[in-house]
Amino acid sequence: MDTLGDVNHRIAPAAPAPLHQFSVPLSATRRGARLARLLAAEQLHGWGLPLDPARLIVAELAANAALHGRVPGRSFRLALSVTATGTLRIEVADIRGDDLPAPARVTAEAPAESGYGLLLVEELADRWGVRCGPVPCKTVWAELDFAPRR
């Protein structure tokens, strides 16, 4: 039986060479997640890209890494890249490859108090998924398509 990571790995297209790249390790804490959002906003501003919805996606993925991907003494990594074709790729990698994310399912029953972050990512991103490895890591990624600059 295929996992979500297996399926996403097979269908993820080969990425074109990035026009811009940014990567930083951050502490797997609430403070690290907040810093990820602030650094992403600064980077996007410097690249002349709109802050939202990318800033919201970074906030969600970083918060998940700090909450669910945390291993004491280990960090998570935020990476941003922009291609010449106008695609922004957001990646958040953590050390908990054994704990793959699954989007919440909205039901008519009593709503859950949390767990809606990946539904937000799914709505805002043009594509998203999970890449497993190298062991023991996983990377949750999301892509946004922007019109290329002329």
Rank of each mutant, 00 (worst) to 15 (best):
M1G: 15
L4P: 03
L4C: 07
D6K: 10
H9D: 14
R10M: 13
A12E: 11
P13V: 07
A15L: 13
H20Y: 14
S23A: 15
S23M: 13
V24M: 15
V24Q: 15
L26N: 06
A28Q: 10
R30A: 15
R31I: 12
G32K: 10
A33T: 10
L35S: 13
L35I: 15
A36N: 04
R37P: 04
R37V: 10
A40Y: 01
Q43C: 12
H45R: 13
H45T: 08
W47A: 10
P50E: 09
L51F: 00
R55V: 11
R55Y: 05
L56R: 11
I57K: 00
V58H: 01
V58F: 04
L61K: 09
L61G: 09
N64G: 08
A65C: 12
H68C: 10
R70I: 02
G73S: 08
R74C: 05
R74F: 10
F76R: 01
R77K: 14
A79G: 14
L80T: 06
V82S: 05
T83G: 09
A84C: 06
G86K: 03
E91I: 02
A93D: 09
R96A: 12
G97F: 02
D99I: 09
L100V: 07
A102N: 07
R105P: 00
A108F: 06
A108P: 01
A110R: 13
P111R: 07
A112V: 00
A112K: 13
E113N: 02
S114Y: 07
G115A: 06
Y116S: 05
L119H: 02
L119T: 02
L120M: 08
V121C: 03
V121P: 02
E122F: 00
E123P: 00
D126P: 02
R127W: 09
G133D: 11
T139P: 03
T139C: 13
E143N: 07
F146I: 02
